[in-house]
Amino acid sequence: MDAFLNSTALVAFSEIGDKTQLLALILAARYHKSIPIIWGIFFATIANHALAAWVGHFVSGLALTTYMPWIVAVAFIALGLWILIPDKMDDDEAPKKDYGPFITTLIAFFLAEMGDKTQVATVFLGARYEDAFVWVVVGTTLGMMLANVPAVLFGDKVLKIVPMKVVRYVASALFIAIGLFSVWQIVSA
């Protein structure tokens, strides 16, 4: 349950203001069809985060077991600092050809999430909770949906209500706190 709750919270907070959330806003404004966009985000996230959690699980099983707890702890702290840097949507990441709202969202979201903060976080969550792979994927997917569904449904109204700076600071603090807690567990063991 710890893997699920941490995965959900960390991804939900770190996704706010992220380029994939900006992509969700752009797609919602372009298509005005929220249901296919939401399904596209859902399936793209499951595929992307399952791959990322598997990579984290695989890496944690390598002969790096002595160093892995330190790598994961430092990575969480680094991600916490990375979240403080706001994302901007690159023009070349916007979909070029129109395949309809579902396929366009599925492809664009999967590709935009590659190497993104939330994907990297999912890799490290997969490594940290190596025995809870499914809960990491379910949690990170739920976190993505919690952050992106309101963006699709309410668009720019959400951006006027939620102060991005505060949310980035909270997300950053969560990642750093987990990293520091991991360091404390390593040192006190």
Rank of each mutant, 00 (worst) to 15 (best):
F4E: 10
F4W: 04
L5K: 06
N6F: 13
A9L: 14
A9V: 11
V11L: 12
A12Y: 00
E15K: 02
I16W: 08
T20E: 06
L22Y: 07
L23G: 05
A24L: 13
I26P: 03
L27E: 04
A29E: 13
Y31R: 01
H32D: 14
K33Q: 15
I35M: 15
P36L: 04
I37V: 14
G40V: 12
G40C: 10
G40W: 10
I41Y: 11
F43A: 07
F43R: 08
F43P: 06
A44P: 02
T45I: 06
A47W: 11
H49E: 05
A50H: 08
A50R: 00
L51M: 12
A52N: 04
W54V: 12
W54A: 15
V55C: 03
V55F: 09
V55Y: 07
H57D: 11
F58G: 04
S60W: 13
G61I: 10
L64R: 03
T65Y: 08
T66L: 15
T66I: 14
T66Q: 13
Y67K: 13
M68G: 12
M68I: 15
P69H: 14
I71L: 14
I71C: 12
V72D: 02
V72L: 10
V72I: 15
V74C: 14
A75K: 09
A75D: 08
A75E: 06
I77E: 04
G80K: 03
L81Q: 13
L81W: 15
W82P: 04
W82M: 10
L84K: 02
I85H: 06
D87K: 06
D87L: 07
K88C: 09
K88H: 15
K88A: 14
M89R: 12
M89W: 07
D90H: 14
D91E: 14
D92R: 03
D92Y: 07
A94R: 14
A94E: 12
K96Y: 01
K96N: 05
K96R: 12
D98Q: 05
Y99W: 07
F102K: 09
I103T: 15
L111E: 11
G115T: 09
D116Q: 02
K117C: 03
T118Y: 05
T118C: 08
Q119C: 02
A121Y: 02
V123E: 01
F124P: 03
F124R: 01
G126F: 01
G126M: 04
D131P: 00
D131G: 13
A132D: 13
F133W: 11
V134C: 00
V134A: 12
V138Q: 01
T141V: 01
L142V: 09
L142P: 01
L146V: 09
V149C: 07
P150L: 03
A151W: 09
F154H: 09
G155R: 03
K157E: 03
K160Y: 01
I161F: 11
I161V: 15
P163H: 10
P163M: 06
K165S: 13
V166E: 05
Y169Q: 14
V170G: 08
S172Y: 00
A173N: 01
A173T: 06
L174P: 00
F175T: 04
F175D: 02
I176L: 12
G179V: 09
L180Q: 08
S182C: 08
V183H: 05
W184N: 13
I186K: 04
V187I: 15
V187N: 01
S188A: 14
S188F: 07
